[in-house]
């Protein structure tokens, strides 16, 4: 057993090469729960705490592209410039655990764990985010929808590390909503993120905790595009919002588990979708 504390990204990638099967430790908010409850042992760990390159984010204003380092904590997305660029991400970040969890938890960790209940994941899906990964010999950029393979499964190879997430800025409204048993410190029972793209006059909606992966509701999006003009600034007919909610609900694939029932989740996620569309179209 060993714990490695790389100082640079290159060092981290090299360690991943020479220590096969090493566990990657980011914020620790998933990892340490498993360790504390003996759900998995600790063998070789590469802790990213000191890799400053992964804690930075940048905004290319010409290309309209933001790149967020894998180890940027949620606390940095709640307020400030990142929150202005991606309000949906800020809303999702604010619902993650508690201030203590948000100071530690990272986007890279959310993607590494790849739980369908990961709070940032529906937002990344709705924003068509791209996940940048690297190994000592190559780098890859993977659309988030291809990156998430299943519940707690992702496309990452043994020797690869999640380096950053690239998101294009969108002209238009975006939001996030989540249902849980209380307001703070809660893992989502159902969640949704909606992006209204005014340039392409289209919408993207992605759902969390109601399927084995995050679910994009392509059919509901296409239906909405046919019945509502996002750029018209006209009041949204209530019946459209209701039907949108119903259609989103139909595309969800929830199950019964210890946190909720499939029946409730299917209903709740439709309500979230309806509310998000009402909020977004009122802007």
């Amino acid at each position: 057993m060993s714990i490695h504390l790389p100082q640079t990204l290159n060092e981290a990638l090299h360690m991943l090469q020479v220590v096969p099967h090493a566990q990657i430790l980011a914020g620790g908010t998933d990892f340490m729960v498993e360790v504390n409850f003996n759900k998995h042992g600790v063998h070789d760990v590469i802790a990213l705490r000191h890799v400053d390159e992964l804690k930075k984010w940048s905004h290319d204003t010409v290309a309209g592209v933001v790149t967020i380092g894998a180890a940027v904590p949620y606390a940095d997305m709640e307020h400030g410039e990142l929150a202005q660029l991606f309000p949906a991400l800020a809303e999702a970040a604010r619902t993650v655990g508690s201030p203590q969890i948000r100071a530690a938890g990272t986007l890279g960790g959310n993607l590494g764990t790849c739980s369908p209940a990961g709070d940032a994941l529906p937002v990344l899906f709705a924003l068509n985010a791209v996940i940048n990964v690297a190994s000592t010999h190559a780098t890859r950029s993977i659309p988030v929808a291809d990156f998430m393979r299943g519940p707690k499964r992702n496309d990452l190879a043994q020797d690869e590390l999640i380096v950053s997430v690239t998101i294009k800025t969108v002209a238009g409204w975006q939001g996030y909503a989540k249902v849980g048993t209380r307001n703070a410190m809660v893992i989502s029972v159902a969640s949704a993120s909606l992006v209204l793209d005014h340039v392409n006059n289209s919408s993207r909606i992605a759902l969390g905790s109601v399927g084995p992966t995050i679910i994009r509701c392509i059919q509901a999006e296409q239906w909405l595009q046919g019945v509502y003009d996002f750029t018209s600034h006209q009041a949204l007919d209530d019946s459209i919002a209701t039907e949108f909610g119903q259609r989103v609900s139909q595309e969800s694939r929830p199950i019964d588990d210890h946190r909720s029932t499939a029946l409730y989740r299917r209903h709740a996620v439709g309500v979230l979708a309806k509310r998000l569309l009402q909020r977004g179209s009122a802007q």
Partner: peptide, 21 residues
Amino acid sequence: TVIIDGAAVCSCLVLAASAVD
């Protein structure tokens, strides 16, 4: 709750050996 490098975090979720430096 403890403070690590200026951030309030849960010490139960910090691998002690990773908190070097």
